[in-house]
Design a binder for these strands. Sequence first.
DNA 1: TTGTAAGCGTTATCAT
DNA 2: ATGATAACGCTTACAA
Lengths: 331, 331
Amino acid sequence: MVSITDIAHALGITPSTVSRALAGSSRVKEETRIAVEKKAREMGYQRNIVAANLRKGRSNIVGIIVPRIHREFFSNVIGGAENVLGEAGYNVLICQTIESKEAEIKALKTLRNYNVAAVLISHAIESTNSAHIKDSLGSDIPLIQFDRVFPDLPGAKIVGANCDGAFTATKHLIEQGYRKIGTIAGYMSSLAYVERLAGYKLAIESAGLPYDESIVYYDTIVKETGYAACEKALEQGCDALYCAGDFSALGAIEYLKEKGIRIPEDFGIVGTANESFTALMFPSMSSLGQHPFEMGQAAAKAFLEGRTDTQVIPMELHIRQSSNKNNTWQK
Amino acid sequence: MVSITDIAHALGITPSTVSRALAGSSRVKEETRIAVEKKAREMGYQRNIVAANLRKGRSNIVGIIVPRIHREFFSNVIGGAENVLGEAGYNVLICQTIESKEAEIKALKTLRNYNVAAVLISHAIESTNSAHIKDSLGSDIPLIQFDRVFPDLPGAKIVGANCDGAFTATKHLIEQGYRKIGTIAGYMSSLAYVERLAGYKLAIESAGLPYDESIVYYDTIVKETGYAACEKALEQGCDALYCAGDFSALGAIEYLKEKGIRIPEDFGIVGTANESFTALMFPSMSSLGQHPFEMGQAAAKAFLEGRTDTQVIPMELHIRQSSNKNNTWQK
DNA sequence: TTGTAAGCGTTATCAT
DNA sequence: ATGATAACGCTTACAA
């Protein structure tokens, strides 16, 4: 490995000049800069980032902490963030928590030890409050939160327009003529789900329908619980469900298909996240889409631009078969 | 930030002893080790990984280079690799190439500059040969290749059983009674696709059917080209297609549905990758599944265990509606 | 414009 | 079992 000292020796100058030349400092003669660059290329010089980072006390690594890398939503956020950060000369260190608070703390500490330039995080379900964050990360490193955020923590936040979106989705179900619309609401420990529930409630009440707690299903948002919740919803006389996650909506659709209940004629379903399968399944699923790639880009830009405000990324309702009485075969 | 020197001062000993104590060296008295650990906890000491890495000349970062982070296959590989590496105390630095050779070279150089412990890579489509690899990465850093590999490069390789899998998939189509089976073969610059084509050919010939180059479609494996290839295949009298990618198979199915051609009665389709949408779409798509999470784990373990052999991960045929004449509604 | 020298925090090699 | 010292490769006051 060739170092700046090697180049300096080869050129009969000092390492500091080489360092300055390579950094493009204005305090070095054009001529020497050219010579240094030439020699560096000749000798196959590669800057030792670790040494530079140690000296500077900060690195050009940005840490990203997500519950699960391979979840479609998060991998798209990561992709979007890398896209922007890579352009800006940053590299991305990934940690996954598998929804564990302990793993989240460990990840924060690790990233602090790397002197990362910033941390982008979407919290684990098990992290029900923000107390551990500043303890683990310290307060020198910018923290950008996305999707699952703690409002009491300072710094930039990127969130979906969950309340608005859920309002639109529920209103759509009402407009389609469904009359008793329940919801699979998800975890109330997460603000995103709280807001989706608020949007649902707002739509129900704005339409003059009764808000009925007994048809709000506070289940985890996986297929199996969606299946079970749909069974209950039917017993309670519901004819539609707004689901705060696509997988619970998927479970609901499976239940309805098994029971021979017609979708969307007899029962309507809208999911949330617009996972790629929703457009391709049968019946295709209406879903409230987030824009994960754009959220990742926004989070990265928020760091680069030093923003500290909260950005709300609009959500988009994709109306498909599962809630569209007018045109069952629309794609 | 508290350093080992701070702990040493507080305890009236030297940094070297603190370092040894914290590293769990046997050359330090039990008593002092306990004292150091206690003090470190009290003072909130966090080891500066950057400094340690510089001194040791290597880091506990493993670099992963993939074409696209948010592709389902790759995000699962990354998830699997992180799962194993995290356990072993390594962190994961992610780079994406967007299929560009130039970006791949840049990523390799960057990772070299970080003194990463190893690089896990699946090559960009544009990287048609291995020449740039050693130039960019050097030969001191272990390189583990997965999925898209260069056989001429030394070191561990993790690949799917592409030939076997494609053989099984094509044989399945033959057994279903299809008689003129074409293939959407993908890029021949990538070994994975070459082997899938070889497996297809083997199955065709083993069944005594003629291998016909005119119904081999060397297209890129996206939806649009699948659509176009299917149109040609129909014109040429095919009644089935083995597709080396799920998205080209998806395009083919869309074409068939538009033309009102019955699936699987009149035309059979098998895709490759077992993307999550294949099980949920209508008609559900038969697909040759890889095991990306396991491939990621295997790649990580190959590094940890210092393996240098090639591991072949079996592929699994999921038979669904698009190729199953016997039971159209099987799930 | 360039050189000198110190130091980032750790680990490794001596010596004691 | 511990201490002294140097070094990893780089950046940056400060001096010239």
